[in-house]
Design a protein around this nucleic acid. Sequence first.
DNA 1: CAAGTACTCAACCATATACTTGAATATCCC
DNA 2: GGGATATTCAAGTATATGGTTGAGTACTTG
Lengths: 229, 229
Amino acid sequence: MPTDANHRRFKDALYEQFARVGKAVSAPKRLELLDLLCQGPRTVEALAEEAALSVANASQHLQVLRAARLVEAEKKGLYVEYRIGDERVCRFFHTLRGLAEGRIAEVEQVTRAYMTERGAMEPVGGGELLRRVRDGEVTVLDVRPAEEYRAGHIPGALSVPVTELKKRVAELPKNREIVAYCRGPYCVMAIEAVKVLRKRGFRAHRMEEGVVDWRARGWRVAQGEEAAS
Amino acid sequence: MPTDANHRRFKDALYEQFARVGKAVSAPKRLELLDLLCQGPRTVEALAEEAALSVANASQHLQVLRAARLVEAEKKGLYVEYRIGDERVCRFFHTLRGLAEGRIAEVEQVTRAYMTERGAMEPVGGGELLRRVRDGEVTVLDVRPAEEYRAGHIPGALSVPVTELKKRVAELPKNREIVAYCRGPYCVMAIEAVKVLRKRGFRAHRMEEGVVDWRARGWRVAQGEEAAS
DNA sequence: CAAGTACTCAACCATATACTTGAATATCCC
DNA sequence: GGGATATTCAAGTATATGGTTGAGTACTTG
């Protein structure tokens, strides 16, 4: 029997399976959806809205992601809730993103251009800031939408979506340093929040890391509403 | 100014850059090339041969990988040597493969079918075996082609390509346990080697892990010829 | 059961992609 | 310089893919 031909067939079959994952992350919009889903489960409509897609198109992309087993869908009454398949999927996405950041110069160019135009401050972050956040030395603000906070947040963080920040600024302690975070390094919500806070005299900083990075470090992630104050 | 539209443009540009990496790993053959390159640098011809591609086609795939900055090319006289861009690229490939293994059932089906047909033995491996290999408690055999051994091998391993094994079996110590490794879990060279060795009365085992896994653990990888005995 | 909502399906179009074939380029060796 | 070799380029083809539009399905609510 032609064992060489068999070997070729096996390899082809194997890499074809691996490529299912590759194909799933080969479209920009699917990466955006995946990124969003790493922040928490969502309905098709919500995803379409946030990624600037038609609902039908979003649905199709989600089915591709589902076929590659990267995301899962669950029918909840009238809605279909999509969620990330498991923790490793987010890790994988982050690995891909990190690789692109490290090796594709255009990534930095594109972000730098946008961030400076937006007047983004130094993207404070890194180990020291993370440690202070973890040890509770600062007031931590989660400025993402409330559902994302509920799906998972840094323990001790207050949920103040950036859209409500101006209204609720009185709730914040004036004398303590504030660290705001959102979805990650490319998310502008925390940048916006810091701008607002500084204008009002707070000592505020932005943390680049998001919940996924937090979890990746093996630190605990809290779920649900914030504890009563 | 329409800052919302700008934001959309930024996101689109950003995810498009990330997708360059995704697109690069969306074709089975490119994944195979990447896998081979993780074992060591090679010429276009050698890659085409091993991946069962025409030279022109291999060249085109390699250019796609290069455009995504995953591999690098260097002209060496008449040949062009392709190599992995950096360590992280191999890690990324391994992450992708691991994700596919963990989440796509077909991967296991396909391998199980082929492995049992080939009469593969239990895929011994895991922490304990790795430890014994690292601590030099067994004779370690690198059964890949000699160039791959030269590009990087487990310290202390002997280079005995599976193609030469039968001729050179006399060089091996009869009383010590032997552990053979090759490119990784889907590579059949070590399986073949173990089969040959056991038939000749050696106590031989296969290790699933390859050099990339070894390096990923932060252990030292040796390069060049083996030390004179 | 009728109306409304959230999602999926089917058909369609434009473009992108994998692969082939044959020619062009670059380098080495004589 | 001329011939041989390794790689890339260019053109062509069949198929796959991302996106649109409009109809279909499944569930909820009145």
